[in-house]
Design a binder for these strands. Structure first.
Lengths: 239, 239
DNA sequence: GTCTATATACGGATAGAC
DNA sequence: GTCTATCCGTATATAGAC
């Protein structure tokens, strides 16, 4: 699947994102008309990611946000009850969207090598389409409350587990060599993460998301099918 | 080389780090006696990383730092002129140490596969020994001033370039296949970064730095020597 | 060399006008 | 629905005592 196809099929516009936020916080938001609410949420969302990804969420003041969004400080408080709530609103919405997309990506009945490729591509394309959110989400996870932080970690691990499961299944079927599926999934996750954390680097080098995806898929499939790994050299224990 | 050997040979204690900071800021620091200066710098350094890696450098107040270090706010100002200066002092010292160690790591006259392994191991062992600093350095790079931020990026790219050069040399000598040396170096860098950014994950799974290093070295050498890569499929352009 | 006390400024949040 | 004006807490940084 190409990035173009993916983006058309998945609902990942800024508007979709704000609809997700609105649905989850309908009662708390003062604006009654959906059109108004979504319009302003888009302004807030955009401004938050812009300012926050430059100087950090903590360093972003309500005055900054007011200026960047065009809404007054008072109006902002009609959409969220303080900075912490704003952070959780944005984090939560993105997490739910990510989970939905990743679930769908590995739900098909493909063979392990293709399933592995699908998972890798889905995550890369998703993080390409929502890059500012992914960056934001990683960098600001520290500032979440205890409960929300736990959820963020869970989301993080879920993606990795998806990949590990596919590799494990491939080993069971005999199409993959005896690689360490946990460590392999971990480093693949690291490669996926590099795509959205180091955007500037890849942009400067004119590496497209598709070329990066081809590269990572090739490396992962090659490692899993080829006999590169130190087969049976002891696996990583979870917990 | 094992982690133990590495740690003994390289000077990477907290005291060494603070000596580096002191040397670079000798005039600005009020304390004249070296013993006093280093002792307090250690308190400040330790407290900064501890509080900052929990809640973020921006969120850390001078009061927090005073409490965590045991020094009064007034005393803190005798060692650095405000938070921004403190940030740059810590970032700069770590960067200089990193550069020194990485240079040494690839300076030997080994063959490319071993040189590749040396570079990977050196970076992993270094980031293991100075994990709090590496995490801090990555997470707080945004809060640096323009000049310092540029230097941080440069340091980042320098490590990657070291790796890319080794791969390129290996290709020239015919011991490595026609892999894309820039993309390969980039994903290897991503794997190295995962080690210090996701410490909690690997700690939970009881993965030691040596096992992780063996894994990454195996993967990298396998990929470069084995014919996995899409040979000659067009390389990444720098800039 | 290190501390306490304080000047000064800035941030989050709210009340109430429009 | 949105804005302006303002309260109040807390932050940085400094002055000057010890």
């Amino acid at each position: 699947m190409t990035y173009r196809q993916f983006k058309r099929q998945a609902k990942l516009t800024q508007e979709d994102f704000c609809l997700e936020m609105l649905a989850a916080h309908r009662e708390d938001i003062k604006a009654k008309k959906q059109r108004t609410a979504v319009k302003n949420l888009e302004l807030i969302f955009q401004a938050t990611l812009k300012v926050s990804n430059q100087k950090g969420f903590q360093a972003m003041t309500m005055r900054d946000l007011s200026k960047a969004s065009g809404l007054s400080i008072g109006a902002l408080y009609d959409y969220f009850n303080g900075k912490e709530a704003l952070l959780e609103m944005i984090q939560g919405a993105g997490r739910r969207i990510t989970r939905r997309v990743m679930r769908q990506a590995v739900s098909g009945g493909e063979a392990p090598p293709e399933k592995l490729a699908s998972a890798i591509r889905a995550h890369l394309y998703l993080s390409e389409a929502m890059q500012p959110w992914f960056f934001f989400s990683y960098m600001e996870a520290r500032h979440l409350g205890k409960v929300e932080k736990q959820r963020a970690k869970e989301g993080e691990l879920a993606t990795e587990r998806h990949i590990a499961e596919v590799i494990k299944e491939g080993k069971r079927q005999g199409v993959f060599a005896g690689v360490d599926h946990l460590l392999t999934a971990a480093v693949i996750k690291g490669m996926l993460q590099d795509w959205y954390l180091k955007r500037w680097k890849y942009a400067k080098r004119r590496v497209s998301v598709e070329r990066y995806a081809d590269f990572v898929v090739g490396l992962a499939q090659g490692y899993c099918t080829g006999g590169l790994g130190p087969a049976g050299a002891g696996e990583a224990r979870d917990e």
